[in-house]
Nucleic acid binder design. Structure first.
Lengths: 113, 113
DNA sequence: TTACAATATTCGCAAATTCTAATATCGCGA
DNA sequence: TCGCGATATTAGAATTTGCGAATATTGTAA
């Protein structure tokens, strides 16, 4: 089944977005491109770790790069990424509204009727 | 930082979508609601495992349930989920077009310039 | 060519995920 | 109440992921 392969690839895209630091990177890059150094300074994260996250996103086409001397500038690879992230954030916020527990550590499970 | 917490929650939504089986479930539910039994028969997966996946998605508000006698019917909890999935699939397909390696196991890394 | 700054990669380990097997719960009819 | 079908939960092993530490690469200027 070719469908199965698509789900696997699709899941790997989601997996790439499934990290708070990477989401913050995306959020910062939506305003403008940034160099690795700029990102390192803006975020609380080591340069090596940042570079790892960027590599993961690069391989999935989520960000793309432009070199300028010693610096490498990262930008979003596809505007649809931002749209998808915004949609997911809306889903999150709507879910928080109808059951405002999650915000402060209460992990009350959603019950079945 | 309240932002950080949001990124963590957002990442957990993405994590929930980061599984091929769960994406297939979402894809099946977009057409119509289905009972656990119907899903079990339609997908190649054990009932226990399916139930686990459904529980994960339930807790994140991605699916919701309706009971009818012994059967529990699942449906999507928010139409925006489908939109987000479609967008991510477009990103995936566009990325595959510009570098058609991934499809057949060649994991050539995206290089920096 | 050498040195240095910016960035990337590799390695090893703790923590998180996923799956199967086994068990539990829930609703209904006899 | 008892038994059964549908669904849910738990436990444990195997795999994957995230991160720090160390090291490598790349581009530039002296």
């Amino acid at each position: 089944m070719v469908e199965t392969q698509l789900y696997v690839l699709h899941a790997s895209i989601c997996q790439t977005l499934a990290n708070p630091k990477r989401l913050e990177i995306i959020d910062r890059l939506r305003k403008s491109e940034m160099s690795v150094m700029q990102l390192t300074e803006a975020m609380q994260i080591s340069q090596a770790n940042l570079s790892q996250h960027l590599a993961v996103m690069r391989q999935k086409g989520i960000v793309k790069t432009r070199r300028e001397g010693l610096n490498v500038y990262y930008q979003l690879g596809n505007p649809k990424i931002v749209q998808a992230c915004d949609l997911m954030r809306e889903v999150l916020l709507e879910h928080l509204e109808t059951g405002a527990e999650l915000v402060r550590g209460k992990q009350e499970k959603e019950s079945i009727p």
